[in-house]
Simulated assay, not measured.
Amino acid sequence: MTMTVRDFRAADAEAVAAARRSAFPYLVTTPRTVVWAVESAPVERHYRLLVAEADGRVVGTSEVGVFHDGEEPGLAFANTTVCAEARGLGAGSALVTAAEGYLAGLGAAKVFAWTLDEPYAVTFAERRGYRRGRSSRIQRLDLTATALPPLEADGLPDGVDLRTAADFADDPRPLYEADAECTADEPGDVTTTPLPYAEWLASTWEHPALDRELTSVAVVDGVVASYSVAHTDGRGRYWSGMTGTLRAYRGRGLAKLTKNDSLHRARSAGCREAYTGNDGDNGPMLAVNKWFGYEPAVNEWRYFRDLSA
């Protein structure tokens, strides 16, 4: 068997998407999102999509780059995926070795990698010198069998108006400003600075999986106060891209309001499965998702390694 690692080509999109769906069925992944991630990445991210090819067949990938928006310099990422039937053949090692070499050449000091909480994945990471960091809990909601909380039968609270992201097509800046504040409060390993508006438009607003009609927004007295982002893949899968509420409006149930509206819209649009991921320390959103009836699907760990060592 001949194993090679090379850069992604557009012709690989179908195979890469299939490999990711095989390893991470809860993510919204399509050939279009794979190509878009490569073509739209800011130059400062130094993004590369490495592909492991065995006898002419794509068996694994690694997304590699630096956190160009991080407050601490020298932080990078390398998230590696190998098809289940190809594990143990050396694809993962070849990909990680190539990824680390590339990042070291960029001067990166520390690399982060998401790892499934499965024995094979944990063992692989720890044998390569990676240490365990934060956890992420992936949860699933069966939209065909779970009764969603009813919509507000008596109307919305005074001053609250429910809209969709599509209503902001002419001027999405209010969504950008809300997202900048809410994202800053998200727990995580890497503290980031707010994206410039133009970059937010390219990375968030123009994301090919973003479903603006299913993304719900609560406007309070004319201000975007809360929102729930919907990503869909056209295959019945829905992923919560982000649910956030501005600090001044928290504690009013607006996160539940917007997410409930979005989930109802998703079910009506034919989505069958809803997935969401929360940092293990994000108690408020874990409680919200439990209230909706989400059930645990899988856990992930954020591993890291000091490249300088």
Score class of each variant (00 low, 15 high):
Asp167Thr: 02
Leu263Ile: 02
Glu213Tyr: 08
Glu44Cys: 05
Asp170Leu: 11
Glu177Tyr: 04
Val219Ala: 02
Asp69His: 15
Val223Met: 03
Leu143Tyr: 01
Leu156Asp: 15
His68Asp: 13
Glu39Gln: 15
Ala84Asp: 14
Val217Asn: 05
Val122Asn: 05
Leu162Phe: 09
Phe67Ala: 09
Leu246Thr: 12
Thr123His: 10
Gly92Glu: 01
Val224Pro: 02
Gly92Ser: 07
Ala248Gly: 11
Tyr294Phe: 15
Glu72Arg: 15
Leu263Asn: 03
Glu100Phe: 12
Arg57Asp: 11
Ala297Trp: 14
Ala198Ile: 05
Leu151Tyr: 04
Ala109Val: 09
Val160Glu: 08
His264Trp: 14
Trp205Gly: 01
Gly159Ala: 09
Leu103Gln: 02
Thr191Ser: 09
Gly107Thr: 04
Val51Cys: 09
Phe77Ala: 14
Leu50Pro: 04
Glu63Lys: 11
Gly280Thr: 01
Leu141Ser: 01
Val111Phe: 08
Phe77Arg: 07
Gly244Cys: 04
Arg272Ile: 07
Tyr275Thr: 02
Gly244Phe: 08
Thr204Cys: 05
Trp200Phe: 15
Ala54Asn: 12
Leu156Gln: 15
His68Asn: 10
Glu63Phe: 06
Trp291Leu: 07
Gly159Ile: 07
Pro42Ile: 12
Asn79Leu: 00
Asp185Ala: 10
Arg6Asn: 10
Trp301Ile: 06
Ala202Lys: 03
Ala153His: 10
Ala230Asn: 00
Leu263Ser: 00
Thr144Met: 05
Phe304Glu: 15
Gln139Asn: 06
His68Thr: 15
Gly74Asn: 14
Leu257Ser: 06
Glu177Pro: 07
Leu148Gln: 03
Asp7Met: 02
Trp205Glu: 11
Ala218Ile: 04
Thr183Trp: 11
Asp170Val: 13
Arg57Met: 06
Arg128Phe: 05
Val82Gln: 12
Thr191Leu: 03
Gly107Val: 09
Val288Ala: 08
Gly133Asn: 12
Pro174Gly: 05
Arg128Asn: 06
Tyr227Thr: 03
Asp261Glu: 07
Arg21Pro: 13
Ala145Arg: 11
Leu103Lys: 00
Lys290Arg: 15
Val219Lys: 00
Val96Gln: 04
Ala109Thr: 06
Asp221Ser: 08
Ala178His: 00
Glu14Lys: 04
Ala104His: 08
Gly280Met: 01
